[in-house]
Computed example of a mutant assay.
Amino acid sequence: MGRKLRFATLALMAVAAGVYLNNTSLLAPHREGKPVLLAHRGMAQRFDERDLKNDTCTATRMLPPTHDYLENTLRSMRASFEAGADVVELDVHPTTDGEFAVFHDWTVDCRTDGQGVTREQSMAKLRMLDIGYGYTADGSKTFPFRGKGIGMMPTLSEVLATFPDKQLLINVKSRDPGEGEKLAAVLNALPAARRGMIMVYGGDEPIDMIRRLTLGVRTISRAAIQSCLIRYMGYGWTGLVPTACRNAMLLVPINVAPWLWGWPDRFLNRMANVNSAVFVLGPYSGGKFSSGIDTPEAFARLPQGYSGGIWTNEIEAIAKIAGKSKD
């Protein structure tokens, strides 16, 4: 019995050693270079993020502005790239006249001087709206951007034409598979090299459609990211990468990352080998994904020498910390 116990112990030690060697980041090649910075909504006005709900009008909760950029505009995107962003995130909605409007909200009531569901309007009508109309930082006493955002809502086609060589992340706001089919048609009309610089995330149904209809575009949805991370934590120690993690854009909360086999370098290498890009968010809490890596304290939680992706709402501040500011 003693001999069997010793044999079993040695076998377990050998397995443990194999798992360690297969997953330790100490033995993995380290990708040199600076982090890849993703500017969420471009250069945008920040707002009080406490107790947010799906229908919260964040424009009325704006913090005192430190700049005059409005999210999801060409001007905002250009400023983000100039500040050091490698990728800019933008939101889209299909319009009744066949375009994709670049705008965050499901309705135009909060930020603009218009009313109604965004996708139920024509681009011609949306173009007439003042997208800075609803922003206030003092309880509606003043509206510093009112009258300054008329005609500034762009189309996706304009974004693609304005930034032909830049990386973009497109957010599909609906769960309509038909929207995924329409967006897939737009993406498939682009050269293969250009498609490779675009990522798409959003509702499960449209993202599934895009994933099936397009080649070279990395995607992710809530169901896919949960499937990817849960399965990877379950058997990623083998070196196998779940299907949901392949050809994907992965969002990893910073408090979940240490639980991923091989974090950081071996994990990043495994994902790169299956054409997936990894971006770290702020902590996952209360069943919700966080906003981003937006402060020096959050940035300090990243591994030393981290060269993967970072999702941020504060591109100017984080670009300076990461050594990517162009100032």
Rank of each mutant, 00 (worst) to 15 (best):
1 M>A: 12
4 K>I: 14
10 L>M: 13
13 M>E: 02
16 A>R: 02
16 A>E: 04
17 A>L: 14
18 G>P: 01
22 N>I: 02
23 N>R: 02
23 N>G: 07
32 E>V: 09
38 L>V: 13
41 R>E: 05
42 G>Y: 04
44 A>F: 02
44 A>P: 00
48 D>H: 08
52 L>T: 09
57 C>H: 11
66 T>M: 06
71 E>L: 08
76 S>C: 10
80 S>F: 07
83 A>T: 09
85 A>Q: 04
88 V>Q: 04
88 V>W: 05
95 T>P: 07
100 F>D: 00
104 H>Y: 04
109 D>P: 08
113 D>G: 08
113 D>R: 00
114 G>P: 06
114 G>L: 07
136 T>S: 14
139 G>A: 10
143 F>N: 03
151 G>A: 11
152 M>D: 04
158 E>C: 03
159 V>Y: 02
163 F>P: 10
165 D>N: 14
167 Q>Y: 13
171 N>R: 12
174 S>T: 15
175 R>W: 10
180 G>F: 02
180 G>Q: 05
181 E>D: 13
182 K>Y: 02
186 V>M: 04
186 V>A: 03
195 R>I: 08
201 Y>L: 09
205 E>L: 12
206 P>Q: 03
214 T>Y: 00
216 G>M: 08
231 R>P: 02
233 M>L: 11
239 G>V: 11
243 T>L: 13
246 R>Q: 15
254 I>V: 15
255 N>S: 13
255 N>L: 12
258 P>R: 02
260 L>W: 01
262 G>Y: 04
263 W>E: 07
264 P>N: 04
266 R>I: 12
267 F>C: 12
271 M>K: 05
272 A>L: 13
273 N>L: 13
273 N>S: 15
275 N>S: 14
280 V>P: 00
292 G>P: 05
293 I>Q: 01
293 I>Y: 01
295 T>M: 10
295 T>S: 15
295 T>D: 08
300 A>H: 07
301 R>K: 15
306 Y>V: 09
307 S>N: 12
311 W>I: 05
319 A>V: 08
320 K>E: 13
321 I>N: 01
323 G>L: 10
